[in-house]
């Protein structure tokens, strides 16, 4: 039940594929990275460290992920931009049955006609399981250090 090198590389693929789907703007693929029973939460480090539950964004069902994805894609109003997720190496613990993973991230955001800036920096704290043969996030906490979000976060991170 240990985490084999093959599994480790499969986990890294999941992390990379997730980031690329968002950077490529293919948000309709985003909910599919999660298990049927899931929690996705973007949370400020100040809340995380103090045990405060508030998320900047929180979805605790597949339905909520779908609703968010549709809001980002169709309902919210924001200007054109590019995103680049920069991921650190994935650090995994736990067992094959329930994998814990931590990965650092930085997101660069480039708005039309403006300089590239850092949107946020932080780490993913994941619980990953296998569902119908594929690895899925049962829990993905995006704990961000950034004190002031530059304006808004207009996609999932």
């Amino acid at each position: 039940m240990t985490i084999t090198p093959e599994l480790r590389s499969e986990i890294a693929d999941l992390a990379n594929a997730y980031a690329l789907a968002i950077d490529d703007g293919e948000l309709d693929r985003w909910p599919r990275f999660f298990a049927s029973d899931c929690l996705y939460k973007i949370i400020a480090k100040e809340n995380f460290d103090s045990g405060l539950p508030l998320g900047l964004l929180m979805c605790d069902s597949q339905g909520m992920l779908q609703d968010r994805m549709e809001a980002f894609s169709k309902l919210n109003v924001f200007g054109p931009r590019s995103w680049r997720h920069m991921l650190g190496a994935v650090y995994t613990t736990g067992s094959e049955k329930e994998i814990s993973a931590r990965t650092n991230f930085v997101i660069f955001e480039t708005l039309a006609g403006k300089d590239t800036h850092i949107l946020c920096a932080g780490e993913y704290r994941d619980i990953i399981i296998r569902e119908h043969g594929a690895l899925k996030f049962r829990e993905r906490l995006c704990v961000y250090d950034t004190t002031m979000i530059p304006n808004s976060i207009v996609r999932p991170i």
């Binding site: 973007i42 900047l56 964004l57 909520m64 924001f78 808004s152 976060i153």
Partner: peptide
């Protein structure tokens, strides 16, 4: 709370 804040379903539009 998903309605509000920097990624709020609603208030995101205001910041922009």
């Amino acid at each position: 709370a998903n309605l509000m804040g920097p990624a709020g379903l609603v208030s995101m539009d205001d910041g922009q």
